[in-house]
Computed example of a mutant assay.
Amino acid sequence: MTASVDSAREAWRDWLTSERRLARHTLVAYEHDVASFLGFMTTYLGAPPSLEALGKLKPAEFRAWLAERARLGLARTSTARAFSSVRSFFQFLDKRGLARNASIGLIQTPKLPHSVPKALSEPDMEEFLEVPAQQEREAWLDRRDTAVLLLLYGAGLRIGEALSLTRSEVEDLLASGRDTLSVTGKGNKTRIVPLLPQTLAALRAYRDACPFLSARRPGDSFFVGARGGALDPAIVQKRVREMRRELGLADSVTPHALRHSFATHLLGAGGDLRTIQELLGHASLSTTQRYTAVDATRLAAVYRAAHPRAKR
Rank of each mutant, 00 (worst) to 15 (best):
R81C: 07
W140C: 00
S78H: 03
F83N: 04
K118I: 05
A64I: 14
R100L: 10
S88D: 06
L72I: 03
F40C: 06
L57I: 15
E136P: 00
K111S: 15
V131C: 00
R96C: 02
L106Q: 13
F62I: 14
L129S: 07
E61N: 15
R137F: 05
K56S: 15
G73Y: 06
L57Y: 11
A102W: 08
Q108L: 14
S50C: 10
W140N: 02
Q91P: 02
S50Y: 06
R87E: 08
S78W: 04
P113G: 12
E130R: 03
M41T: 05
K111Y: 13
S50F: 12
R137Q: 05
F89Q: 08
S115G: 15
E136V: 00
R96E: 08
Q91V: 02
R137Y: 01
A67H: 12
E138W: 01
A99D: 01
L45E: 06
R96H: 01
E127V: 00
Y44M: 05
R63N: 15
P48F: 04
F83D: 07
T42G: 08
P59Q: 14
A80V: 05
Q135H: 00
M41I: 10
S85T: 04
F40A: 04
E68R: 14
F62T: 13
G39S: 01
R81N: 07
L51M: 06
P117C: 10
A99Q: 02
F92A: 04
R69F: 11
P123V: 10
Q108H: 14
H114R: 15
P48I: 05
M125V: 08
L51W: 01
S103D: 13
T77I: 08
G97R: 02
P49A: 09
L74G: 05
R96N: 00
E68F: 11
W140G: 02
A80R: 08
S121K: 12
A119I: 12
A60C: 14
P49G: 09
G46H: 03
A67E: 14
R63A: 15
A102R: 13
T77N: 11
R76H: 12
E138P: 00
A102C: 08
R81K: 03
R76P: 02
R63W: 13
F90P: 06
